[in-house]
Design a protein around this nucleic acid. Structure first.
Lengths: 214, 214
DNA sequence: TCTACATTGTCAAATAAATAACAATAATAT
DNA sequence: ATATTATTGTTATTTATTTGACAATGTAGA
């Protein structure tokens, strides 16, 4: 779909936000929008919006703007929301259970089909609409259900090991919440590291700047 | 501490990661490290590391490298980990409870001193070492305890309203997990938006690239 | 139908970020 | 002591990203 083949990461990181704002506009019954209007809502420049979108094709019309519904759908397609990747979650602790129940996977191109934990006490426990399965059964489960994406909510010590095991079981994409920089040396595997601790520290830096030390 | 006064956001975003790697080295008993060695561990260039650090001062020694313990401590100080900002969390749902129990606030310059929810059924319920308080008591609590930082784990519809209210109660920094782009029009207030949904969509984009559509 | 206007897509310019290069300098070995 | 090596801090260069400008083009009103 992209004109040349590679679109810079800076652009990709902005796509979900465009998608979100367009969805909101759609729900509010807005039919069309210009790059200028959208730029004011999103607090960025109209030029950037037009240039970002034109990485993927000319979705607008001169003198008119963009059709909200159409643009939303195009960006959704670019992001892959219609793929419904089969997804498993490893680690049913506090964070894992919260992610499983709090995130709407379906609207983001993913379908959560299994939750795993190595702790026997958690086995069978219900989390959302699923029941926790022992990590011992990962091989069996993956052979049967062929999940493609894994969410990691496990302690850092186990992360690389579990990730390597999951790669061998066919997982191609990782959403990693563990306190560890997952690096995958295989090709064609993608990783999105979410470092909540780093995010908090960034805020602490900001707070340290604006709040005078007494 | 910064040489001129403003350090670019790109640099700031990398500081927590430096801090994390240096902490790990320290715990492993490593005394000194060169920018080249660190760059290999962190998968970035030695040049970038030196340039990043020199925004804040010359922490290294020519022909020797950096003293791990000293550099860790310097970066920690820059980030503000020794400030211990008083922090409250709003929204004791799945995500709020997970954040409260899963994140080590103390090691990141924050001290969680209150958890709030508007739902009467949750009032008094224990989360970690704290008990949930009704949001009706926010004014009283803030007047007494003077929190400076707030974590928002609430539905998007309420976010702007609660944030405005908290600003009027003296909150200076927000860690926002709600599905809403919090924008604060007051000066000297900092916001760190964590959009887990956007993060997942970014991964979906990556997965869509590497996993062939059947 | 014609005219005035709005707005895109794209090219050019400006700004920001990352990388490379290297002189200065301290550590270490001889 | 002296020479050699390692490594920083910093300046220069390159690359990437953002912003600005404007011709091309379609819309909408008279």
């Amino acid at each position: 779909m992209a004109k040349n083949g590679t679109v810079s990461a800076s652009v990709i990181k902005r796509l979900p936000r465009y998608y979100r704002f367009l969805g909101e506009l759609m729900r509010n019954g807005v039919d069309r929008i210009s790059s200028r209007e959208l730029s004011e809502m999103m607090k960025l420049t109209a030029s950037q919006i037009r240039q970002d979108l034109n990485n993927f094709g000319g979705f607008g019309q001169q003198g008119y703007g963009y059709r909200v519904r159409e643009l939303h759908s195009e960006i959704g397609h670019i992001l892959g929301v219609d793929r419904q990747f089969k997804t498993i979650l490893i680690g049913a602790g506090n964070l894992g259970r919260a992610i499983a129940t709090h995130i709407n996977f379906t609207t983001r191109g993913c379908r959560l089909i299994g939750i795993f934990d190595r702790e026997p006490a958690l086995e069978g426990k219900q989390v959302g609409e699923l029941n926790v399965i022992s990590t011992k059964k990962l091989e069996e489960f993956c052979a049967k259900n062929k999940p493609q994406l894994a969410v990691l909510c496990i302690p850092k010590a186990n992360t690389q090991q579990i990730a390597d095991r999951l790669v061998s079981l066919g997982i191609k994409a990782f959403w990693n919440f563990s306190h560890y920089d997952l690096s995958i040396d295989y090709d064609n595997i993608v990783v999105e590291n979410v470092h909540l601790g780093d995010s908090l520290l960034t805020l602490t830096y900001g707070a340290n700047e604006v709040i005078p030390d007494k």
